[in-house]
Amino acid sequence: MDYLQYLRLDKFPHIWCAGCGDGIALKAILRAVHNIGWEKDNIAMVSGIGCSSRTPGYVDFNTLHTTHGRAIPFATGLKMARPEMNVIVVSGDGDATAIGGNHLIHAARRNIDLTVLIYNNHIYGMTGGQVSPETPMGDFATTAPYGAMENNFDISGLTIAAGASFVARCTVYHANLLGKLIEKALSKKGFSLVEVMSPCPTAYGKINKKGTGNEMILNQKQLAVRVERAKTMSPEELKNKIIIGTIIDRELPEYVNTYEKIISQAQRR
């Protein structure tokens, strides 16, 4: 496929560091969009603040780079105004689970037809490496000089409990699978989420001696366990592993669709 047709080439080179996974994720999104065959005019990509949130600047869609943590509310308004539009939210772990955490769970609860991609790099990359809700316990960050002391969110568990239709996780090492999972998420009517494990060699890798970007990506291969196989493993065996694949895929009423029915009812009265 021709990726270039979806890109704003005059905006390159991109801001991402060598070894960052965000570019691999971008390619996966474009493959998914291409396979589904959506028109560019009918796609909106919405983001908050952070490295991942710069993605919309590079794609030739309707693009909206909002305030920190608030991509989902902006996307919610846009989707309600234009239900025919395919709305993709790109966010990071800090943006989506810390400052924007409330919006994440409420969008999942409403089961509004958005696809949220959370690039989880375990750190606040753009601001220079501060601890995030996804920094593993004990790992270092510029604001965790003694090691992170807090538990992490289980992003998939959180959004499943909140009511999402579709939840998946993947690494950028498994780029082909990532594209397929994003394609499933985009095709799903309802709230869909893909957690993309994307290494940050600059702000997280270096301080934690995780090696180069390449080494970090190769390490994802070692840690990844397919969701089907994970079901046969004990919690001890799964410790520190990354479970990849479709975690949930279910049929639930979608919010905007429900609202449209309410409008028909209200207008009949």
Binding site: T66, G77, L78
Partner: peptide
């Protein structure tokens, strides 16, 4: 879910 998101949503809808 809060005031902040309400403000974000109206901007998103207006852009639509």
């Amino acid at each position: 879910e809060d005031e902040i998101s309400a403000m974000g949503a109206v901007i998103g809808a207006s852009l639509g």
